[in-house]
């Protein structure tokens, strides 16, 4: 069976084929015999070639969290075919990041220091958020003009909610 996992902007494929003793796993032109020696809820031990490896794991929707020896991996199971859309997606993302200012974490809008139509300088503080007892300054990533303000003083915002738009 073929599986695809995404991390950041990259997607990798791994193939798992059942054998008489376990599986044959292949990725990046390499392959290994794999035997599952212990499988408990949230914990799995495999022999990857000659190496015994125990992983702690959890799944959350499409996310796969995997832990081994101080390293935590978060992969997202995906059906994206990498070559198809990657270029365009990256362009869209880069463009949007310059334009839309998002809340880095959930919190409350404590103060708004700009108005729609104002010119803004790079690094200028636009909005003060309060989250987890801290004051977080939302600053302009580049110079421009504040096109739209999408929040008011006192409202709660979710992580990644659009706060304002710069053009």
């Amino acid at each position: 069976m073929r599986f695809r996992y995404q991390s950041g902007d990259e997607i990798r494929t791994v193939d798992l084929v059942k054998t008489s003793t376990g599986y044959r796993a292949s990725m990046n032109g390499q392959d290994w015999p794999v035997v599952v020696v212990r499988n408990e809820p949230g914990e799995l031990t495999m022999m990857l070639g000659d190496e015994p490896l125990t992983i702690q794991w959890a799944a959350d929707g499409m996310r796969r969290w995997i832990f081994n020896r101080g390293k935590t991996f978060m992969l997202t199971a995906t059906t994206f075919i990498p070559s198809e859309r990657k270029g365009r997606r990256e362009r869209e993302q880069a463009h949007a990041g310059e334009r839309m200012i998002l809340a880095p974490m959930p919190g409350h809008v404590r103060a708004i220091q700009v108005a729609e139509g104002d010119g803004v300088a790079k690094g200028q503080t636009l909005i003060l958020l309060e989250a987890m007892k801290m004051e977080i300054r939302i600053q302009a990533p580049r110079a421009g003009r504040l096109k739209r303000l999408l929040v008011q003083k006192g409202v709660s915002v979710e992580r990644d909610q659009v706060l304002c738009e710069i053009e």
Binding site: Y5, V14, L75
Partner: peptide
């Protein structure tokens, strides 16, 4: 390999 094979398993 650990993460990918682990996820696939």
């Amino acid at each position: 390999p650990l993460a990918l094979v682990g996820a696939a398993l």
